[in-house]
């Protein structure tokens, strides 16, 4: 995968297939970006399970926060990383170990080595993107904020996920 430019179809397929997302670095603080993304993705029908050792055992948006990916008792489809680029390799390793299908790194986060390892293990990888923004962009919702989605179509707006 060319990580400088993802086709819309690649992102759309991920957002359609994924059901359960582990959010590493999720914050219990309502005004943090991770909280925004978690709440939005929940409203779109995803189950989002927070992972943050500093908040382990706490409840964030109705979900119990775990100390690590390995502590999550249910299958995880996608690991979404709200951590800096240098912190990614061990998270990628764990994502592979728990059988996640997608490794997603947030805006500003990119680690090509970890991405290559995850891809070699069969995972799809997205870097330097936000699933909330991508969902909003591909559904047209983010256009309500005047954002340039880059989508041109003569068809009714597609439903990203039902």
């Amino acid at each position: 995968m060319n990580h400088d430019s993802y086709p819309d179809s690649y992102i759309l397929q991920i957002l359609r297939e994924v059901r359960t997302i582990a959010m590493v670095g999720a914050s219990p603080n309502w005004n943090r970006p991770s909280y925004f993304a978690m709440k939005y993705l929940q409203e779109k029908g995803y189950r989002v399970i927070p992972v943050n050792p500093a908040a382990a055992g706490e409840t964030i948006l109705g979900e119990t926060c775990h100390a690590s990916l390995k502590d999550i008792p249910v299958p995880v489809d996608m690991v979404d990383c709200f951590r800096n680029s240098a912190a990614i390799p061990p998270i990628a390793q764990e994502a592979i170990a728990i059988g996640a299908k997608v490794l997603w790194m947030q805006l500003g986060v990119r680690n090509d080595e970890a991405a290559a390892r995850a891809e070699a293990a069969g995972l799809k990888v997205v870097m330097n993107r936000c699933p909330k923004i991508e969902f909003g962009r591909l559904s047209g919702e983010i256009g309500w904020m005047g954002v340039n989605t880059g989508v041109i179509s003569s068809k009714r707006k597609k439903v990203v996920k039902s």
Partner: peptide, 28 residues
């Protein structure tokens, strides 16, 4: 969620309006 800017959506046409937002995206 809307008031906190956590969800995309319309509240009041002073802030966003679906006709206006098409124009905004067009010019962007």
């Amino acid at each position: 969620s809307l008031f906190n800017l956590q969800a995309f959506g319309n509240i009041y046409s002073r802030l966003t309006n679906p006709t206006v937002s098409v124009f905004e995206e067009r010019i962007a």
